[in-house]
Amino acid sequence: MSRVAVKRRILRVKDAVPTRRIDSLAAEEPLEIRLDGTPLTVTMRTPGDDFDLAAGFLVSEGAVGSAADIETIRYCAGATVDGGNTYNVLDVRLAPGVPAPAPRNFYTTSSCGVCGKASLEAVRTVARWSAADDPVELAQSTVATLPDRLRAAQRVFDRTGGLHAAGLFTADGEPLCVREDVGRHNAVDKLLGWALRGGRLPLRGAVLMVSGRASFELVQKAVMGGIPVLAAVSAPSSLAVELAAEQGLTLIGFLRGTSMNVYTGERRLNVTPGAGNGSAGAPPPR
């Protein structure tokens, strides 16, 4: 199997003193996802939880909505010249009667995710579930603990310092699942695939916590998984806020310590007076 971290010899310079050392790098390799034998997409990802990644990608694309929609997921043999397996090609077989999505091959980078899609409207996939009618309520004090809880679960980040993380939490802040990847969108797809294969969709009452910023695509993925709340440690984009408002999603950004900005869906957040919280719309902490 492919490795999640790779060792490399480097030159480290500190206080003008050079030293030789071994450094751990987050692994990044291409994964080709095939659908019923036909190439569908190639994404740059950190190896690991590849079946969840493929299943979650299909959830994000609106192709599947339950574990029963997928018949099998398997690595393709003969991926190398000598007939070996690189574990970088997956084939997903849909269950009989499940329609395949419209043909669309595109390349997905580890940093962007939506690169190569024909248009913005192609990303606005019709969701199977509504986040707007999810009545979940969250205590501001609980939300404030999520970044530290996510960070504590990042095992590979501790070795490499080069991975993003995404985690699913209950409304009480208990972790359900955490995944790491060089791409935030891949980490979220791995979560959606985990939920799909475990019969947990839609993820009502759940909170999606992500490292870094909240992009349009991450909001879209949350909506496709029936997740009512998305929180990020950094800023959302304008399109992310627009889509969250349209879909009834609670979107929280700049979540750092007890400070946070609530951009949409503030009805779900129970703010305790005197808790030192940042108010919605306040200047973000820098």
Rank of each mutant, 00 (worst) to 15 (best):
S2V: 14
K7A: 11
K7M: 00
R9K: 14
I10P: 01
L11W: 08
T19C: 00
R21V: 09
E29N: 05
I33W: 11
L35R: 07
L35I: 12
G37Y: 03
T41C: 08
R45F: 00
L53H: 13
L53C: 03
A55P: 09
L58D: 03
V59H: 01
V59F: 03
V64T: 09
I70Y: 01
G84D: 02
N85D: 14
N88V: 00
N88P: 00
N88M: 11
N88Q: 15
V89N: 04
L94C: 11
A100T: 09
P101R: 09
P101S: 11
P103Q: 07
S110G: 12
G116F: 12
E121A: 15
V126I: 13
S130M: 02
D133W: 12
D133P: 11
Q140T: 07
V143E: 01
V143K: 04
V143I: 15
T145F: 04
T145V: 05
D148G: 14
V156P: 00
D158H: 02
H164T: 02
A165R: 01
L168G: 10
G173N: 08
E174Q: 09
C177Q: 12
E180V: 00
V188M: 08
P202L: 03
V207K: 09
A214E: 06
S215N: 05
A222R: 09
G226H: 08
V229P: 09
A232P: 04
V233N: 03
A235I: 07
L239Q: 12
A240E: 08
E242I: 02
L249Q: 06
F254G: 03
M260S: 14
M260I: 05
Y263M: 01
E266F: 02
V271R: 14
G278N: 09
R286Q: 13
R286S: 15
